[in-house]
Design a protein around this nucleic acid. Structure first.
Length: 645
RNA sequence: GCCGAUGUAGCUCAGAGGUAGAGCGCUUCCUUGGUAAGGAAGAGGUCAUGGGUUCAAUUCCCAUCAUUGGCUCCA
């Protein structure tokens, strides 16, 4: 007999070799039905794996990540099993569970696979589910594992096994399908009740572009059909918030084949929105001691040779612009820092002058790979809300902390609650990708870590995500369907000051090297607006809304009164329109609600007689009558409240 | 750049080897209204572009361009 300790601390006795599923049955029938995986002494196990010694356990139901992991992982195996049956001879890569669902990377050899093949695979999976094949775990030695896959002729698994340590290798088998896998898995294939294969994509083996591209099939599965249906509906709903869709509906931006891929055209309403955001940030930056500068859109090639960007990105950028005079070459600027370095250098700097904080809404052009372009979130021409802070070493931490404050203030004002702060460090295994001395890198990384600690900011740390010249603190936000985008970024840089030979005269009358902080709280106006659209569903806060109020005369007889009111409100700096179409008021309400205009003002005989408006709040409904002045006052107060610190 | 999908009216989409359709929007007319769609008529398309197959191609095939789901990349 062995003692099993449950999460509540109680201890029960079981036969040696009892499985998690048997323990669950012993506790309650219902639990046994719902449980999907088990943690045994802090290790995630299969529900059917026998427990041989005293242990503390926790059983996992669907609502826990540990359960979903096993569920989706087994779903991936189920899909692979079906594919092996339908396409004999395919070679399997890896097939993990992911945040939402699972995938399997498969080398289909000469078979070509497209969306239309998915139903066939789903049908085969359904058969295998019905068969309720037990999923069995087996420990194997490294030589045996290698032999198995060498014989099978699967180079991918052989490569994986070679990287594993003997004694840690396990196989999982269901029916005639066996896979190298750490597990854990469900007890049998019958557990997988509802599933759908979602899409096909190419994916490089081990994520390396130089390797062969395998076919990746994504899928999702749930213990209940209703949950799958709900999930698919949720996905559809999320797509309604897609900034590309709303951008079109609200006439914020467009693209033109003739202008070029990835080059957004801002329409009047989008331009208004963007300008308002720029004004807002400019005001904040002024408070924080920034000064605006302006630099040209091109610079001599030499500028980027000096900065190191040419060596790193020259081949993959928009190519140099020739001029009538031979040997002269300019680049469209892919970033603003070199220009700002030259501004710093235009006169000698004293330690008393520092920090110098130089801000510019700088439009830059980067030749992103065509497959990478995506709405406004990834474009080839975009405007950074850029600034560079040139400071002394003793000012670095404080300056960095102040930038964090700006980012957090902006996120708060715009109601971005769900973001992650990510410390992006260099990949210690691939130092060749980066420029600058180890010593400077360590100083820079330390500065970020200390600043973050001082702010008590919760962060994740990712190796290999640093810029080539320095580490970063990135603020990541998810879009409507859960893709992560980097918005704000703060970077410490010891390298450019060296390359541009920047200096200041210290109190000791000697020359010193300033440190540079690159920072962009929005990241880029394009991406920020995109994410803002998806977070708000196009219902922008009042202070940002391109149109704040619209007059809806109940009949044409009151068009004139409506125009008078609109003029008055515009004089109060309220962005007001008149909907004087020959339509019923119900129709006007519907149309303007869909345009997400915050205030709808209905005017008819009652209002015209007493200088009133009937106020209807977007998404809420009738708020009753007000005088024009009261409404203006009310609206302006609301705006002030939204942007006050 | 790579793997898969898509491209038809301003927008959302249907359609078939034989000269193109709906709803919304737009224009005009009727209606003059009170909190989420009043009625009628009309205009609007080189079916992304270029080749090929065919008596005939917007439809089938190929290429290009663009969009899109991923992969890789992201100064």
């Amino acid at each position: 007999m062995i003692n099993i300790t449950l999460p509540n601390g109680s201890v029960r006795e079981f036969e040696k070799g009892v499985s998690g599923l048997e323990i669950a049955k012993n506790i309650s029938h219902r639990l046994a039905k719902e449980v999907l995986s088990i943690t045994v002494n802090d290790e995630l196990w299969d529900l059917s794996r026998p427990i041989e010694n005293d242990a503390s356990i926790k059983l996992h139901k669907w609502d826990e990540e540990e359960a979903k992991h096993a569920y989706w992982h087994s779903s991936a195996h189920l899909m692979a099993e079906a594919i092996e049956i339908l396409y004999p001879g395919v070679k399997l890569g890896i097939g993990p569970s992911i945040e939402n669902g699972f995938y399997y990377d498969i080398d289909f050899n000469d078979y070509s696979i497209s969306d239309s093949d998915l139903p066939k695979i789903e049908a085969k999976m359904q058969e295998l589910v019905k068969a309720k094949q037990p999923i069995e775990r087996k420990e194997v030695s490294k030589p045996v594992a290698l032999e198995t896959y060498t014989k099978k002729g699967d180079p991918y698994k052989v490569e994986l096994i070679n990287d594993l340590e003997d004694g840690t290798i396990t196989f999982y088998t269901q029916g005639n399908f066996t896979d190298l896998c750490r597990g854990p898995h469900l007890p049998d294939t019958g557990y997988i009740k509802a599933f759908k294969l979602l899409s096909i994509a190419g994916a490089y083996w081990r994520g390396d572009e130089k390797n062969k591209q395998l076919t990746r099939i994504y899928g999702i599965s749930f213990p209940k059909k209703s949950m799958l249906d709900e999930y698919l509906v949720m996905l559809e709903e999320a797509k309604k918030r897609d900034h590309r869709k709303i951008g079109k509906e609200l006439e914020l931006f467009t693209f033109s084949q003739k202008v070029g891929q990835g080059l957004p055209l801002w329409l009047p309403k989008g331009a208004q929105l963007r300008e308002r955001l720029e004004q807002f940030l400019k005001r904040v930056q002024k408070r924080y001691g920034y000064e605006q500068v302006i630099s040209p859109h091109i610079g001599q090639k030499e500028l980027y040779v000096t900065s190191g960007h040419y060596a790193k990105y020259g081949k993959d950028s928009f190519q140099p612009i020739k001029t009538p005079s031979e040997d002269e070459e300019f680049l469209l600027k892919p970033m603003n820092c070199p220009h700002h370095c030259e501004i710093y250098k235009h006169k000698p700097r004293s330690y008393r002058d520092l920090p110098v904080r130089m801000a510019e809404f700088g439009t830059v052009y980067r030749y992103e790979q065509s497959g990478e372009l995506h709405g406004l979130t990834r474009v080839r021409g975009f405007t950074q809300d850029d600034a560079h802070i040139f400071c002394r070493p003793d000012q670095l931490k404080e300056e960095f902390v102040k930038v964090i404050d700006i980012v957090l203030y902006i996120f708060k004002t715009l109601n971005f609650q769900e973001f992650t702060a990510q410390i992006s460090l260099r990949d210690p295994k691939d130092k060749g990708k980066y420029i600058g001395s180890d010593e400077n890198w360590e100083k820079a990384e330390q500065a970020i870590i200390e600043a973050v600690e001082k702010k008590g900011l919760k962060t994740t740390t990712v190796l290999g995500e640093a810029a080539f010249y320095g580490p970063k603190l990135d603020f990541m936000v998810k879009d409507a369907i859960g893709r992560k985008w980097q918005l704000g970024t703060i970077q410490v840089d010891y390298n450019l000051p060296e390359r541009f030979d920047l200096e200041y005269i210290g109190a000791d009358d000697k020359k010193h090297r300033p440190i540079m902080i690159h920072r962009a709280p929005f990241g880029s106006m394009e991406r920020f607006v995109a994410v803002l659209i998806e977070h708000s569903g196009g219902k922008f806060p009042l202070w940002l809304a391109p149109d704040q109020a619209v007059l809806l005369p109940v009949s044409e007889k009151f068009n004139e009164y409506a125009k008078k009111v609109a003029d008055l409100l515009n004089n109060y700096d309220i962005r007001t329109l008149v909907d004087d179409r020959n339509e019923k008021v119900g129709k006007k309400i519907r149309d303007n609600e869909l345009k997400r205009i915050p205030y709808l003002l209905i005017v008819g005989e009652k209002e015209a007689d007493d200088n009133l408006v009937s106020v209807r709040l977007q998404g809420v409904g009738d708020k009753g009558q007000m005088t024009i002045e009261d409404f203006a006052k009310h609206l302006n107060e609301e705006v002030e409240n939204q942007i006050k610190q």
